[in-house]
Amino acid sequence: MTDQAYNFAYLDEQTKRMIRRAILKGIAVPGYQVPFASREMPMPYGWGTGGVQVTAACLVPEDCLKVIDQGADDTTNAVSIRKFFQRTAGVAVTEATADASVIQTRHRIPELPLREGQILVYQVPIPEPLRFLEPRETETRKMHSLEEYGLMHVKLYEDIARHGQIATSYAYPVKVEGRYVMDPSPIPKFDNPKLSGSAALQLFGAGREQRIYAVPPYTSVVSLDFEDHPFVAGKAPHDCDLCGATDSYLDEVIVDDAGGRMFVCSDTDFCRGRKDAGHIGRLGVQTDGGA
């Protein structure tokens, strides 16, 4: 049921036009951060206002929306955002990655490969990949325009000199179509390979920092690395204790006060799907859907 007190998908039409124009320019220049006049939303900056605005500008009544935070559909902020769009846009919602036409995410890319027609909307806190190397917007804008990314390579190389490897484990910088260095949002670097060549359209919204950027489908996205230190997508060296998956990103859960640990899929829909298909991990139990 849509809340009649607000416009469809909450934002007024002029605001949506402004955001839509920014999205189109973002698509035309993959990886380039398009400034947009982010609006104050009824949730705080840092809670996904950029992603919410991008989703609001994209939604149609026929959409089926999935919202995840840390890979899970039932984290409180994911629940809150999903409810917001149920109320203001009246769209159908789902937890199943395969059934969703629009997926808004914070910090993860679903494990299931996305398909054509799907849109993945990322919530982005700091869109500027060079920000922690150079805090000034006036300077970083110049660096992007001149394609001057030496500073980033120096930083990564210093990591190698000090630690023997690149000590960036999330928000790992990427280069899009050989041109713009882009922050993929704070996804674990485990997810970086999924950015490249995806069949889905990927949109990034940073509300507080007023930036929108995009990776169109089938676009090359390369994680920065060195020939002698190639990029490695890392994860905990365990299998999921519930579904037994060997290739999914894992949450570590402390289960007792003696320091006992278990590892479970961060992507809750992926894990449930596997359990329903009869896969059982070390500590799992057969579910009703199991064979």
């Binding site: 949506k16 839509r20 999205i23 189109l24 698509i27 035309a28 994209c58 009544p61 359209l201």
Partner: peptide
Amino acid sequence: DAPIQSARAFRAAMEALSR
């Protein structure tokens, strides 16, 4: 019905430009 029609139209335009 501008909110709905423009939403569908934008989605088509975005789909066209991104593919």
